[in-house]
Structures are given as structure tokens and as C-alpha cells.
Design a binder for these strands. Structure first.
Length: 523
RNA sequence: GCCAGUAUAGCUCAGCGGUAGAGUAGGGGACUCAUAAGCCCUUGGUCGCAGGUUCGAAUCCUGCUACUGGCACCA
């Protein structure tokens, strides 16, 4: 089977990471970990977009070289991904020589096949903002507002990609590949929008305006702008257009990407129109087109997260306060794939304390505690009575359901399946009442069977939690002294020979609400 | 303006043609292995509004309202 190839958007190194960046990477990480757990080889690519005007401007403001500025911000992302346990296999930094070489090779090839041409654009240009203005920027009076400063009429030469040559192909493609985009309502949106996107795509900036980019191989007075730099990362870092050496993963075995995980803001037109058209122009067939997994945004108490309102949530601070387990669990649990979600620390704490602490954590704790108290950690091997066998059979069904849900990228649903399994196990503890069984020697076998069943259920629950909360799930497995269950393996209804469980210790300490929330800087 | 999405219990959401559901929060009870957790029972809703189709609609259709988003020749 082809390796599972998953990418995220590469983050722009102009501003430090916020909760949305963290969410996207955790999302991709959970899917990557899940696939590895299933035994599939995984190539998980993430990275940073380091070129561009804003980086150049920010660096100038601080009086340092753009590379230094980009590296500094990149470092913040790298640190955060380490904190969050993002298990990426490759790091796509767009200033890497390998990437530059691939971009230039692709541009040269497209130029030779007449996909690129040079043309002059003339329009209103804001000297202060260093950008061309459109009618959208005009005020109600039809004039450009004072925020643009001096506006001049300017002619500028640039290189263009013949996007319009692809429009017919794109429409056909979106018609035939119904599952190009997940969720499907995004594909509908894309189809409607794609028909309105006409004209060609400007892919360059004159160096007089922007130096911080990859030089066009056939015209040294220009750098390529945004998309032919950033989007190419998905293939350049997978080995496309790069000289192969020993350690390089062969591009052909990886492509196409199983998921480009992106936010809804960059679907149209970048990933939904430009990217497939670029690939098409490069000679990729319809079968070689990747799949887009589009996620929603997090708002903060119903408000859009934005720097101007100061309600940006710093993921590093959240980890500091609540721990990586609670954050990863909450973000995956409360956001329905593809839809927007509202972030609140109350809910983060609620999810953690009820489902993880009271539910799973307590199940593990009480199970191990009783196993030690009544059986010195080693339940005797007995054949299971019908009710307990049925309980384990239900667990096996839950695993199947989980696999279906995770394969469909419905992570929130998968977690719910885990929670259901835990609730069933907790109910079993009460209905079987081991503390009563322990008082009567006649029920000795029954007690062994119940404890074994509970340990096996806890193991299954920890297995399902593993992709979402690897640290905590690993700790549970350590305490119950069993390896994770293998997906697709046969249901196991017995503990191994000579089994002895470890000492229980709370894995999910209760979280308390702080008087002042992290996102409350405005108050 | 065009195109979508959402509107169901205080909160988060599921149901998508056949007598209103889950979790959580609130109330009550029995228990004691456990992170005063867990278990059982229970109070909460004229399913945004108005029409229509149907024997029957939260579920399909039409219109309206509110909120969210995409697009509108942004190089």
C-alpha cells in the first residue's frame, strides 16, 4: 500500500502561531498517528512559508536580514510543534535550497511549454502600502481613502501563468471528482466560485518592489510570488523535481497526497483552483490530483479571532496552563470536522474533567486499584461468562466503528466512540460490583473474569485515545502493563500469561478554572 | 447582487418521513472499588417564523427572518 501522505498548510512567518495554527497541525498529527497505528507508512509534511513582502517589510522595520527574521519566527512554530507533539516527518521551509531548485525547475519547464508569458499591467498603486488597488478599495465616493497615502497610476511588467487555459479542464475535473474536497459543501462552494474566476494568474513581482523570494530562472529581474513558491512545497519536499539521493523518499511512491489539510480561507482560489491547475499544467493526470481536507475556524466566545481585537489565544500559554493532553483532546473533541467551533476554556476544562478524568481516568484507576486489592495485580485466567464475553464483543464493535470514523476523518466522532466504550465499562463496574464478589469465595472466578474484562476494556479505550492524546494514552498502557491493541487484529479476550498490572496513578488530574482566562486580555 | 451553510432542552450537538434524543448543567436515590469520581432514576424543547405536499414533517417543498461563510474581472 502506498504510504499515507498528509500535509498541512505552511504557516506564514510574519506573526507567531495562534490557536488556529495549532488546531490544524494537531488535526493532521492525529490522522498521521492513527495511520501509523494501523501499520501504514506515513509521510507527514508541514512547514513554513518564509518568503514574501510582509516578511521583507517586517525585517526591514527591525533592521535585520529577512532570512534572520523568518528564521526567528519559524523557531516559534518549531518550538510549539514540539510542545504539542506534532509528529511530522519532514519540514518544509521555503528558503531551503532543495525547494528553490524545484520551483525554478518547474517554472523553467512551464516557460518552455508556453504556460507563462510576460505582460504589462497598469493600475492605481499605493506607494505607502506597496500594492496595486482595485475598485474594492475605493470608498463610497469612488475615491481611494487616505489610508492608502499617495496613489499613482503605474505600469508594471509581470509574468503570468495561463490559468484561463485550464478553466475548462478544471470544471470537468470538479464535476468528475466529487470527493476532491472534504467536506462536500466546500466542493459545492468551490464549483460555484470556480466558474467566476477568469483571467490569468500573476506569478511574479519585480525585484524593485520585492526581493525576498525565488528568482525566476529565465528573468532575473523578477522573483516568483506566493503560489508558485508556497504551493510547490507539497511536491518539492516529497522529492519532485529534485535530484534523488539515497535518503530521499521517492516522489512516485508518495504522490498523490491523501490529504492536504488546509483552512477554509485558502480553499478558494489557492488550493481549489490554482493548485490543481498548476499540477495539470505540470502534466499531472486527474488521477494524480491530491485530496483537500478543509477545516473550519475557531472563534473566541462567538467573536472572530483577530489581532486587532486582541483576542488571540496563545496555544503555548494554554499548554502551560492546562497541559498538552487537555488541549489536544478538547480541540479534536469539540470541533466537528469542517465546521467552525467556539473556543472556551470552560469547555476545555469540562471535556477534560468529565470525559478524560471522571470517565477514562477513573475507570483505569478503580480497575487497577481493585485488581491490586483483591488479586494482588494478577487476575487468574478463567473463561469468560456470556455477559462479559458480550461486553468485550461490544468493545470490538466500537473499534470497528472507530476505524470507519477515523478513515472518514471524523475525529470528533471517533472520540465519542471511545467515550461510549468507557461509559459502558464504568457501568459494568457498578453492575458487576467486584467489591461484593470479593467478599464471597464462591464468586472468586467471577471476580477474576470481571477484573480481566475491565482491564481489557481500559486497554481498548487507551488504544483509541492514542492518536489524540499519545502521552496520556501511553501512560495508561504503562499502568495497565499491556501494549496497545492492534487494529484489525482479532478481539483478544484474555490477559497474557503471568500478567500483573502496574500501580494506578491519576493520569488526568482535575483542572480548575482560572479566575481570569487566557483569552481575557481585553477585560 | 449571486451561491452555500447554520437555526432542535440553560450549554455543546445528534436525529433528516412514522409517537422529540445524547452529553453536560439542575433535581432525587442506592452504593463504596475509584481523581467526592462512578452507577441508577429524573426536571428541561409548541425542533427560527409562515405556508404547502403527505394518512403522518424537526425530517421534503416554497417564502420569510437571523447569524456565518464563499464569489463579484482583488494582478
Amino acid at each position: 500500500m502506498k504510504p499515507f501522505f498528509i500535509t498541512t498548510a505552511i504557516d506564514y512567518t510574519n506573526a507567531p502561531p495562534h490557536i488556529g495554527h495549532a488546531y490544524e497541525k494537531i488535526l493532521a498529527d492525529v490522522l498521521a498517528r492513527y495511520q501509523r497505528q494501523r501499520g501504514r507508512e506515513v509521510f507527514f509534511l508541514t512547514g513554513v512559508d518564509q518568503h514574501g513582502q510582509k516578511v521583507q517589510q517586517s525585517a526591514e522595520r527591525e533592521g535585520i536580514p529577512p532570512q534572520e527574521f523568518a528564521d526567528r519566527v519559524s523557531e516559534k512554530f518549531l518550538t510549539l510543534w514540539k510542545t504539542l507533539g506534532i509528529s511530522y516527518d519532514a519540514w518544509a521551509a521555503t528558503t531551503a535550497p532543495l525547494h528553490k531548485a524545484a520551483v525554478q525547475r518547474i517554472l523553467q519547464d512551464l516557460k518552455e511549454r508556453d504556460w507563462l508569458y510576460k505582460a504589462t499591467y497598469s493600475g492605481h498603486y499605493s506607494v505607502r502600502q506597496e500594492q496595486f488597488l482595485t475598485d474594492k478599495e475605493r470608498g463610497p465616493d469612488g475615491e481611494f481613502g487616505p489610508e492608502w497615502g499617495e496613489v499613482v497610476l503605474l505600469n508594471e511588467e509581470n509574468w503570468y501563468f495561463r490559468l484561463s487555459k485550464c478553466s475548462e479542464w478544471l470544471h470537468g475535473f470538479l464535476e468528475s471528482r466529487k470527493d476532491f474536497v472534504t467536506p462536500d459543501f466546500r466542493q459545492t462552494e468551490l464549483k460555484n466560485a470556480a466558474t467566476k474566476i477568469t483571467g490569468d494568474l500573476c506569478i511574479s513581482r519585480p525585484k524593485s518592489r520585492l526581493e525576498w523570494g525565488i528568482e525566476l530562472p529565465f528573468d532575473s529581474s523578477f522573483v516568483t510570488y506566493v503560489w508558485f513558491d508556497a504551493l510547490i512545497n507539497y511536491i518539492s519536499f516529497a522529492g519532485y523535481g529534485v535530484e534523488m539521493d539515497e535518503g530521499q523518499v521517492a516522489f512516485k511512491t508518495l504522490w498523490p497526497a491523501d490529504h492536504h489539510v488546509i483552512g477554509k480561507d485558502i480553499l478558494i482560489p489557492a488550493h481549489g483552483v490554482y493548485w490543481p491547475c498548476m499540477l495539470h499544467a505540470m502534466g499531472f493526470s486527474d488521477e494524480q490530483m491530491p485530496h483537500l481536507l478543509v477545516h473550519g475556524f475557531w472563534s473566541l466566545r462567538g467573536e472572530k479571532v483577530s489581532k486587532s481585537t486582541g483576542n488571540v489565544v496563545d496555544p503555548a500559554a494554554l499548554v502551560e496552563t492546562y497541559g498538552v493532553t487537555a488541549l489536544r483532546y478538547y480541540l479534536m473533541r469539540d470541533a466537528v470536522m469542517g465546521r467552525d467551533a467556539d473556543f472556551s476554556e470552560e469547555r476545555l476544562i469540562l471535556r477534560h474533567n468529565t470525559e478524560l478524568g471522571n470517565g477514562l481516568g477513573n475507570l483505569v484507576n478503580r480497575t487497577l486499584s481493585m485488581t491490586h486489592r483483591y488479586r494482588d495485580g494478577s487476575p487468574k485466567q478463567v473463561s469468560l461468562p456470556a455477559d462479559l464475553a458480550a461486553h468485550l464483543a461490544a468493545d470490538a464493535e466500537s473499534v470497528k466503528t472507530f476505524v470507519v470514523q477515523m478513515d472518514a476523518t471524523q475525529i470528533h466522532a471517533g472520540i465519542e466512540t471511545m467515550v461510549d466504550l468507557v461509559n459502558r465499562a464504568n457501568a459494568l463496574v457498578d453492575s458487576a460490583a467486584p467489591w461484593k464478589l470479593a467478599k464471597d469465595p464462591e464468586h472468586a472466578d467471577r471476580l477474576d473474569a470481571v477484573l480481566s474484562t475491565l482491564i481489557l476494556s481500559a486497554r481498548t479505550a487507551a488504544t483509541l485515545l492514542l492518536p489524540v492524546a499519545p502521552e496520556a494514552a501511553t501512560e495508561i498502557l504503562r499502568q495497565i502493563a499491556l501494549p496497545a491493541l492492534e487494529f484489525g487484529g482479532l478481539a483478544i479476550s484474555a490477559l497474557p500469561e503471568g500478567y500483573r498490572c502496574g500501580e494506578p496513578k491519576p493520569v488526568f488530574p482535575r483542572l480548575e478554572m482560572l479566575v481570569e482566562g487566557i483569552g481575557d486580555s481585553a477585560t
